[in-house]
Design a protein around this nucleic acid. Sequence first.
RNA 1: GCCGAUGUGGUGAAAUUGGUAAACACGCGAGGUUUAGGACCUCGUGCCUUCUGGCUUGUGGGUUCGAAUCCCACCAUCGGCACCA
Length: 818
Amino acid sequence: MKYQPQKIEKKWQKVWAKNNYKIWHAKDKPSKKHIYILDMFPYPSGEGLHVGHVEGYTASDILSRYYRMKGYDVLHPIGWDAFGLPAENYALKTKKPPQEVVPKNIKRFKEQLQSLGFSYDWQREINTTDPNYYKWTQWIFLQLFKKGLAYEEEVYVNWCPSCKTVLADEEVIDGKCDRCGTPVERKKLKQWVLKITAYADRLLKDLNLIDWPERVKTMQKNWIGRSEGVEIDFKLEDSDKYITVFTTRVDTIYGVTYLVLAPEHPLAAEICAPNYLLEVKKYIDLSLQKTEVERLLNAKEKTGVFTGSYAINPATKERVPIWISDYVLMNYGTGALMAVPAHDERDFDFAQEFHLPIKEVISYDGQIHNEILKPYTGEGILVNSGPFDGTPSEIAREKIALFINARKVVNYKLRDWVFSRQRYWGEPIPIIKCPKCGNVPLDEKDLPLKLPEITKYEPTGQNESPLADISSWVNVTCPRCGGPAKRETNTMPQWAGSSWYYLRYLDPKNKKQLVNPKIEKSWMPVDVYIGGVEHAVLHLLYARFWHKFLYDIGVVSTLEPFHKLINQGIILGEDGEKMSKSRGNVVNPDDIIKEYGADSLRMYEMFMGPLSFSKPWNTKGITGIYRFLNRVWDLIQNAFSQKNKKKDEYKLTPEAKKKLQEDLKEIERLRQKTIKKVTEDIEALHFNTAISALMTYTNALGEIPSEYLKKTYYETLVILLAPFAPHITEEMWHIFLKHKTLVSFEKWPKYNEKLITDNDVIIIAQINGKTKLTFKVRKGENQKIVEEKARKLLKKYLNEKKIKKTIFVADKLVNFVI
RNA sequence: GCCGAUGUGGUGAAAUUGGUAAACACGCGAGGUUUAGGACCUCGUGCCUUCUGGCUUGUGGGUUCGAAUCCCACCAUCGGCACCA
């Protein structure tokens, strides 16, 4: 009988699917031995599943199947992240409403996931666009609102003219929209904002509690961007007003030769001297029109304008000119800075451009330098700094801060999360805008606030969501005063639903609570979370923020949602380039499954290399795995089909008999070794080497006539292979090994460390650290005997030379230094 | 520029408590089987060589009896951030 994956796989998928996948269903209250293994849930796009999904999902499936066989209660759920721009844009493109397109895409994704044999708990399936789900997304928003962490503010926001909506900072890459690549514009708009900055410190600090890849932690650290410094007030000349600046380097205050305000700074126009006003206004207008891309393009060439006004340096009492320039960002620090051109590159460039003085105050060698060709940005000894001359930077910072009465502050690069979108396909924000009462939250009992079905869902581009056009939905009475009011028409961003979905899996049908606290406590946190690195500062940061908030209001019991994070690498096309339609190098999993079967696809992707590496696809490589599965199939089929095969040891020559005895001993050692290797490799997610070990074991089994091998040897292979290739192993277990049970729930074998090592060990014989030969001795053999043996064997190399030193490592090596 | 990761055969890679470098595959070569192709099976396959051995883990140095592995400097590739005061 030939191995026919197409037939076998369908057959076992049907068996597993019985009673809505009951066999994979996790208990609400697990036993102590439990593990929560989570995938980043897919966005059901129109393109269907790609091989990158398959990689991460196979890894988590192997883990889940392994831990089930180990006797764990395993929670391994899946669902759909279906709100947001991609689905809406796809709907617009195909001219069908999202309500129609999204379920179709989900259906296709579900079929694809099932065709791969993933052991998901489908009874816990969730969908972020289901009102029963987003009811709780809206509920979380209301809690944030009640705690003052969701607020409306007129801010400069990123506006994508193509997607016709505002974007969060995290969604802007190099000044361009993350979705469509259009350069974003700056617009001042009133938007809903979530106060993620209130959690900046904890988001940073608690990175120490979690087992995440270093690079993801670093990205989050950089994104949060904490820096300690001081705020200093510079009094304006001839006025009582102050300009407050932020600096991390108060030690350079004697080197301040001018101040700079951001063009958006509220005082920018106000402080301007009358005869400079025209110029200043022109500059401000011009810089506000620039897109972020334009502004960054010529970052090296500084532009700016003098206001004609001066402020007083609180340390030197000197007057310093006040300039305006777009190299100062309004949304960092105070939107104003003290410029120290001698010790800051940007200030240096600006000072050169406008011929402003450059004054050295930090010396790297204690000397004073007449000419400064390059700013020195490091620390050193203060010079030209009055009473602080000779003080090291670090100490000077403390002393000067005290001297001028500066306030210690901590600044973050992290900005509050712009949370409203002017688009249709998202969760409606549950707020009513009343002319009298302001923003009134919806009563919790009125949730979910359903997204109305409409015919015109194209974005308007008028800073409003298409929902604004449905007067029957928009116009309501104020729940507080009963007067006429309107609903908030903006919707939530794509990231809302995914910021807490891992909690809903625990209790997906609960109508009264987001999650039952008892169930939450018994499963959380997520033990292993597998997904792409592209979410490092988006989803993973937002989810941590919401989780910490939910912790504060008592909904969850853990400080962090995801204990261990694994990033799978990107699978590149055969040409080594990123897979893309335009390059024509996309590999479709459906085609591979059709030709080789899901088991081969799963195993190939695991065999390609370490999970976290980016690696190119190689269709030839999959034939290697396919051949392997065929070999396993034939091996086991042959072993159990030739009924008449008999042991005929008596026919063997004494030498052959001896060899057989040794081979049988060796294969038992290898079996033990393989169990150990596969077990440890799965737990460490080293699937590529686990598969190698299985191949080695299979090759060795093939060397020995099956009539001399006990059934256990083949069973071990099938069991160890089961998490990787669930279909073929289920079939072999049933058809060839004649079991009535499912191998998916067979007990994972244990190994015996004692049986792994031989009585004989191989000793490496070296001269001056170079290996010359190896020889066998009994395990634990006496040092003298081993050395003597080595000396004899190495005679021709040693030839009478004096041995200066001998290094002996028990059971490992002898090294003669001559 | 800053931060992070990585560098080993023709290819994907293995070996990380320092102890036989290249496991397991792909590819390639030879042979078998086959009408042929494909599939399958067997053997070989880091480089150089005077066949004795010598060399080899991005480059250069160091520590050590011994380094892919530890330390220092440099180079390259990938990813992230980038006028953040």
